[in-house]
Computed example of a mutant assay.
Amino acid sequence: MRWRGQRQSRNVEDRRGQRRPLGLPIPRGKGGLIGLAVILGGLYFGVDPALLLMLVGGGGGGTPTTAVSPQDDELAQMTSVVLADTETFWHQKFAEAGKTYQEPTLVLYRGSTSTHCGRGQAAMGPFYCPADQQIYIDLSFYDDMRTQLGAPGDFAQAYVVAHEVGHHIQTLLGTSAEVRQRQQAVGQAEANALSVRLELQADCYAGAWGHYLMQQNRLEPGDIEEALGAAQAIGDDRLQRRSQGTVVPDSFTHGTSAQRLKWFQRGMENGNPADCDTFSVAQP
């Protein structure tokens, strides 16, 4: 993925370093930046990170643990570039619909940090907090993608960021609030099924952003395969089979590997977010 030399987002808050003040954007370097989404860290454990955040609770400032390495800074720059690319894409799509896009903030941290959704932990992986409209990433999760999930590559990492931005889109459009309200009136299995549709839509939104990047001639050979591999690696069925040896479909909150792959590809086909309505189909 061609990210060096590209615009970096100013909506990045760096909480990683022990002596770095909070709230400063990542410095601009020679390399550009990237990032992007689709896998929530809670998937790693087969649990919805949003629910974990609500249960954990907490407060206080971030808890930096180690000095920031040059490799870590490069990942931060890449993530910042990806966020900037999502800003360009979604500003365009919102303008086409007669709306104004409100950009989210992306927080980089190490170990743990406070959020309006409770205490954010590195083990949760990247997640979006609708209460403060911020995305949280401990960059060590990129290593987990490569070593534990079998999903290496910069475009796979970008998919992660784009997926989380997809949740921000759902917040702005009122989709998330509507789903949460519906979940309160149904049983656990049906509530989980609604969560799956929400996650698959975020995957599709990430794919639509990927289509935009492809049109900008920013993708390199193998990039699409990286993102598709990441989408498959984080399916509930694959993660459950790996962690507990069995699969319990009623407990799925993010979708199977096949579903996640399908909806990411749906978005990649023509880059139209209108194709990402996972709620009107009988079987997503």
Rank of each mutant, 00 (worst) to 15 (best):
A158L: 14
E164V: 05
P104W: 01
T88Y: 01
T246N: 12
R218W: 13
D277H: 07
V82D: 03
Q92P: 10
T113E: 09
R15I: 01
L106P: 12
V56C: 04
L53Y: 05
S112Y: 00
L51M: 03
D143K: 12
P221N: 08
T65A: 13
M1H: 13
G42V: 07
Y159P: 00
D275S: 13
L200M: 07
S80M: 12
V165L: 04
F89S: 05
I137N: 15
E96T: 05
V38D: 01
L43A: 06
D237Q: 10
H254T: 03
P64N: 08
G32Q: 11
D203T: 04
I224Q: 09
A151T: 04
A202Q: 13
H116Q: 12
G207D: 03
T79M: 15
P284M: 01
F89V: 06
T105K: 15
W263F: 13
V47I: 15
P21K: 09
A84V: 03
Q183T: 02
G166D: 05
A258T: 01
H167I: 04
V82T: 10
H168W: 01
D236A: 11
A162E: 04
S114P: 11
H254Y: 07
T175A: 03
L219I: 09
Y128L: 10
G23P: 08
P152G: 04
G271Y: 07
D72M: 14
P130N: 04
D143N: 13
G5D: 08
M268S: 09
W3C: 07
P126T: 06
Y212W: 15
T278I: 07
S140M: 01
R182I: 13
Q102K: 09
Y212D: 14
V81T: 13
N270F: 01
V107H: 13
R260C: 10
Q18C: 14
W90G: 15
A76M: 08
A76F: 01
W90A: 14
K99Y: 00
M1V: 04
N11C: 04
G210Y: 09
G255T: 10
M78L: 14
G245T: 02
I169E: 14
R4S: 14
V82W: 12
V56F: 11
L198W: 08
D237W: 06
T115L: 02
Q181G: 13
K99S: 00
V160N: 15
D144S: 02
G118K: 00
V38C: 10
Q259R: 06
H168L: 02
A151W: 04
R218F: 10
F264M: 02
Q184Y: 01
A231T: 01
L172I: 06
A185F: 07
G120P: 06
R2G: 08
E226V: 00
Q216A: 14
A151M: 02
D203A: 09
Y44A: 11
R16K: 14
V107I: 11
E96G: 07
G31S: 07
Q244T: 05
G32D: 08
G61S: 08
G60Q: 04
A84P: 07
G57Y: 05
E103H: 15
P284E: 00
D154G: 12
